[in-house]
Amino acid sequence: MYYLSKKKNKYQMGATKEEIIEVFQVKGRNESIYFQELITNLSKYIETLGLYIRFNPLDDHWFISYDDEMSNLVAANPFKGQAKLAATLFCVIICTYSNSGVARVKEIKELRKKKDILDDLKILQEEGYIETDEKTNEVRLTPLIGYQLDLQKLFTKLSLKLKSNEIKPKETSN
């Protein structure tokens, strides 16, 4: 619990599977089974406290969060009142997802259309969500958003939204 709830740096917290295995000095072929049991048992143990074990796919770290209901109760949204910034981050997430983790600033600009996004990207970088390579004009996500947003849930919601045809492509204005 100590290792899963410890902040490592600005972008990371928790521990990887390998780190946990090393801490508990598990050796041999059964280390994965032992790890799974450890995570499952700890998860059951802390469930009553309103805590939940999660996995950040962006850096393969396991960490502890408050459960879904509480997360939304305790003002977990770091973009409250900053809809434009959140929408730009969403755009970066989708672009990096579609391009093996890297997105070009040009592409993001095109997708966000008339909205000037350079200021947004600058703020997102300052807040630790993205890293921008000025030479290549490429943007990468840091692991930070994986700790603050349930990415799997977001993609599922988006898939369902598209499926139910609630979104109808709007005509682009030239």
Partner: peptide
């Protein structure tokens, strides 16, 4: 997803997608 972004969704619409996806980490 690309097609969705090209449809130029409103910022509010995107924020709605984020709803109930936020995580509060325990440290």
């Amino acid at each position: 997803f690309d097609l969705y972004l090209k449809s130029n969704p409103d910022d509010k619409e995107i924020i709605e997608l984020f709803n109930e996806c936020w995580i509060k980490t325990f440290q």
